[in-house]
């Protein structure tokens, strides 16, 4: 075990994957010589050469499209979209090509690629550097969607994503790159070195895609969360003195329905939280699953706490962000229903 930030864990996952499989190539904007704007690919070009880790032009559609072609002929590209907000020009390649080539070629070829992107807000990025677009990917059949919340999982899941035979969208909430941010933006940053999930296994290891993790055991209610909101939900539970069970979904597609059902059947109450806007967010899918599978165990209507239905704001970022106060209030209300 080594204590790492999530950035270091992601970097280490690249190192391990590139070391163990010479088909793995890494590219994107500023990822080669510079090492990435968030430093997730630092040192890869020096170690593996500029034929395996290189700088792409500012061309998101080109990056993903090229990855599809590489993957079709046996390579394992892991590409970085510098901010999730920049992915839209590549959306066509992700949806119409990466996700679909396996089906339309009847399995003749496929696109085992990883598209990594920093996601979410909390860094004053305004509307084009703060979005959480996970639902745009979970809606697309043929894609897997992973959202990580800590260094330990980030390494294991990234290695699993690179080794996966299907295209994986890998979302890294940038606000937890350097510590388990719990939504208290006015308090000092807690570093990963002071958190058990900052301990990362050395060498090769992977975490199965499609398995949730019980982040905090509890009996009062179930919180379904992923990414930064896992830490927010934990803080809210502790501040409210509520024995909430916080489930870190880790992968949205495939979804660990069994883990969700098991927890909700136990607690009888369910709160769904995410940073992305409410309407048609992934939370809606979670509500549907819980309703279909756990209705007769529910003692109260399912609640959602999400971003407001507005473009990510410049002013009032913290009023938009579903922090521990809003999440905690919803927990109290859910318990009194």
């Amino acid at each position: 075990m080594t204590a790492m930030t999530m950035i270091e864990a992601i970097r280490d996952a690249h190192m391990v994957a590139m070391e163990s499989d010479d088909r793995v190539v890494v590219f994107g904007e500023d990822v080669g010589y510079f090492g990435g704007v968030f430093r997730c690919t630092q040192g890869l070009q020096e170690r593996f050469g500029d034929h395996r880790c290189f700088d792409s032009p500012i061309s998101e559609a080109g990056i993903v499209g090229a990855a599809v072609g590489m993957a079709a002929y046996g390579l394992r590209p892991c590409v970085e979209i510098q901010f999730a907000d920049y992915v839209y020009p590549a959306y066509d390649q992700i949806v119409s090509e990466a996700a679909r080539v396996r089906h339309r070629s009847a399995g003749d070829f496929s696109a085992p690629i990883v598209v990594r992107m920093p996601t979410g807000g909390g860094i004053f990025g305004g509307q084009t550097h703060s979005q959480s677009p996970e639902a745009l990917f979970t809606h697309v059949s043929g894609l897997k969607t992973v959202v990580v919340s800590n260094p330990h999982d980030a390494k294991g899941l990234l290695i699993a994503a690179i080794e996966d035979d299907d295209p994986v969208v890998f979302l890294e909430p940038k606000r937890v790159y350097n510590g388990p941010f719990d939504g208290h933006h006015d308090r000092p940053i807690v570093p990963w070195s002071k958190h058990p999930l900052g301990d990362v296994p050395d060498g090769h290891y992977s975490i199965e895609i499609g398995k949730a993790r019980v982040h905090r055991e509890g009996s009062d209610l179930t919180v379904l969360a992923y990414g930064t909101l896992v830490h927010v939900a934990q803080a809210a539970a502790e501040e409210q003195g509520i024995d909430a069970e916080v489930i870190d979904l880790r992968t949205l597609v495939p979804l660990d329905v069994d883990a969700i059902v098991e927890s909700v059947e136990k607690t009888g109450r369910c709160l769904v939280v995410h940073e992305a806007t409410l309407t048609s967010g992934f939370g809606a899918e979670l509500c549907a699953v819980v309703q279909e599978r756990c209705l007769f165990h529910l003692e109260a209507p399912i609640r959602r706490v999400c971003g407001w239905d507005t473009p990510y704001p410049h002013a009032h970022e913290w009023s938009y962000f579903p922090g521990p106060d809003r999440v905690g209030r919803a927990m109290r209300e859910l318990l009194s229903t």
Binding site: T279, V305, W308, D309, A315, H316, Y320
Partner: peptide, 21 residues
């Protein structure tokens, strides 16, 4: 600083009912 209500102003011509959190 702007009023916090401004978060939900200028999203649409008029904010549709129910579109909040």
């Amino acid at each position: 600083v702007p009023d916090v209500d401004q978060l939900l102003v200028d999203v649409y011509t008029e904010m549709p009912a129910g579109a909040t959190s």
